[in-house]
Every structure is written in structure tokens, then in C-alpha cells.
Design a protein around this nucleic acid. Structure first.
Lengths: 166, 166
DNA sequence: CCTTGACTTCAACCTAACTTGAAGTTTTAG
DNA sequence: CTAAAACTTCAAGTTAGGTTGAAGTCAAGG
């Protein structure tokens, strides 16, 4: 007589994870999670999906895209619960990533202080207004973030604060 | 006999600032910069626009949205070159902002370490997968960044790394 | 004067990560 | 059995910060 149902409906998973049902469907579409179906075609999530969703949200907070999270999940064991070793490995990578972000911000701060000293803010000369020291010609594409972290060449990270004014 | 032309064409401004002409037009549309027009309707930017563009790019690196930059620019003197005092004031605000971002990242890191210790990653219980400790019900809207900085209530910042794979 | 390169506007597209809504189906409580 | 709540799919919209392209106009050199 298990009190825990073997599977969860979207609504239940949503309620327990704090993630909107629409987002869960979106994750499924992107193959980050999967569900069985009832005869009536409704989703039933195995319970370990809860942990998987937690992983996704945590990874997002560290700054990973869903694409990257997808790959990270692929590196974790498919069906068994991740061991402490698995988790340690992942967390080391995440910590490094966070450290890189912090380092970048601190560099930016130093530049900012420097620019106050020199009172500059002149283009090309000023370190602050120049992403890396090379200007222009990012290549094409949307370039929708001001500073490309791009490939992990230099590792300057762009920080975007969302939801301007409610 | 001034060697410096009084105004710049878009092409010139683009070349000297490293910002694409299309972006400059976009900034103009958003009223971050302005241009006079020739009789033939072509843009001619006053030279101080160079500095203004530098300011915009620098502010973006600090993580301000164009909306916020617009307000910051409104706080700066309209037509005179900003004094060192102006610049110091701005830079202090920016530094604080960067510091907040760093603090947030460090908190995230601590949580990450903590989660390794406890091996958890359980929803709601795990600090890492929960943005602030309150879950769900962000309100409506696109919510396209996982963690809302929202109004400056708590100040948790979402870091987004762009341009997944070139 | 004429060609070429630089410029103009405007609309449509791009990314990421979702949300919203319409129209219809399933489950479940009573 | 029925009504309501919960679910289904699918298309279209949202945000920010631009880019791309078409179709046409301006400016400068020869």
C-alpha cells in the first residue's frame, strides 16, 4: 500500500517542482524530461523526474542554457539516481563556471575603477567600453548579448538582468 | 582649419565606435542617441555621440538594459560633457551593481557546495534549485529568465550566457 | 554627368525560454 | 451519469537587442 503514486501528472509535477506546466511540456519537447502516456494520452511522469527538474532549474541558475543542460543530463546515468560521485563531478564544473563569472565581473570592476581614475570613457582606448580589446566584427547573427562569451576563448560573460519594470 | 569634421556619418560613427550601423539606428529609435539630418535626409551625428555610445556599451557590460541606460543618460547633463563628478556618481552605482552580482554568484556557489555536502538536489528543500526560498507564482509574462531579479527586492541576478554554439 | 558606395526606410527575422489561448479530450468527484 | 477540473495539441505571442534584405535615394570622385 504505497502512499506515493508511482507516477505524477503534469499538474502534480508542476505543483511539486514549482515549474509551470507549460515549461514542463517545453522541457519534454526539448527532450530534457520524458513521460509515459495513459491510454487517454495524458502524461504520467516517473517520480525521478522531480529530481531531474530540480537539476534543470539548478543548472539554469548557474547560467547553463537548456542546450547545455541537455548535454549535462546526457552525461549523467540514464535511469539510475545519480551517485554522489556523479553529482560531485557536475558540481565541480558548475563551481568553475561560477568562478569564471565572478572573475569576469571583478575584472570589469577593476576596469571601471581605472576608468574613473583616468576619467576617460573614450572609445577603443577605454578598456571598459571594449569587450576584450578587439573591437567589431563579431561575425553575423543576432548578437543579442552585448559581450560574447562565445566559445570559451576568453570567458568574458554577459550578465543580463531581466524584467525591466513590472 | 579643423581637421575634425563637426559631425559624423553613420558609417564613421560605426567604424569609430565598433558598433554596427544597424545598432546605432536602433539606439536612435530608442532615443539613446540623436542625429541631425542633411538636406538629403542622411544622419549626421555630433561628435559627442561617440562618447555617448561608449557609455552605452560600457553600461551594457555592467548589465544594464537599454531602458536603464536610457534613464541613466537622462540623469547626465544633456549637452555638456559629463564632469568627473558625474562620472564618479555613475561609476559608484555601477560598482555597487557589480558587487551585488558577485555576491549573488558567491551565494550560489556556497549553496552549490552545501548541496554537494548533503547530496540533495531535492525540490523545495534544496536551496540551489530554489531561487529565493519562495517558489512559483512569479506572476504572468514571458518569464524568459529563470530567476527574476525583478524589482530590486532581493537582488538575485540571473546570468545568461548567450550564443550557444556558433 | 554618371557611376559607385554609402546612405535611407521598412518589414521581417533571429535567439532563448517560455506563456497564452483556442478548441477539443480525459479523469475524477459527486 | 454528469459536470467540472485537468488534461491534450497547436499556433502564435512575448522579451531584448539587435540583424538582414529589399527597394530606393544621396554624395563624392573622375
Amino acid at each position: 500500500m504505497s502512499k506515493l503514486p508511482a507516477t505524477l501528472t503534469v499538474g502534480e509535477l508542476s505543483a511539486r517542482s514549482g515549474v509551470a506546466a507549460s515549461a514542463l511540456r517545453f522541457y519534454e519537447e526539448r527532450r530534457l524530461i520524458a513521460a509515459e502516456r495513459t491510454t487517454g494520452n495524458q502524461r504520467r511522469y516517473p517520480r525521478h523526474t522531480l529530481r531531474r527538474v530540480a537539476f534543470i532549474r539548478a543548472a539554469q541558475r548557474v547560467g547553463l542554457s537548456l542546450e547545455e543542460i541537455s548535454q549535462a543530463l546526457a552525461n549523467l546515468p540514464e535511469n539510475r539516481t545519480p551517485t554522489k560521485a556523479d553529482w560531485t563531478r557536475v558540481s565541480r564544473a558548475w563551481t568553475e563556471r561560477i568562478d569564471r563569472q565572478i572573475a569576469d565581473l571583478e575584472q570589469l570592476k577593476r576596469k571601471l575603477t581605472g576608468c574613473v581614475g583616468c576619467g576617460c570613457l573614450s572609445l577603443r582606448t577605454c578598456a571598459l567600453s571594449n569587450p576584450d580589446d578587439e573591437q567589431g566584427a563579431y561575425g553575423s547573427g543576432p548578437a543579442w548579448l552585448p559581450t560574447p562569451e562565445g566559445d570559451r576563448r576568453t570567458g568574458l560573460v554577459a550578465v543580463a538582468a531581466g524584467r525591466a519594470a513590472g
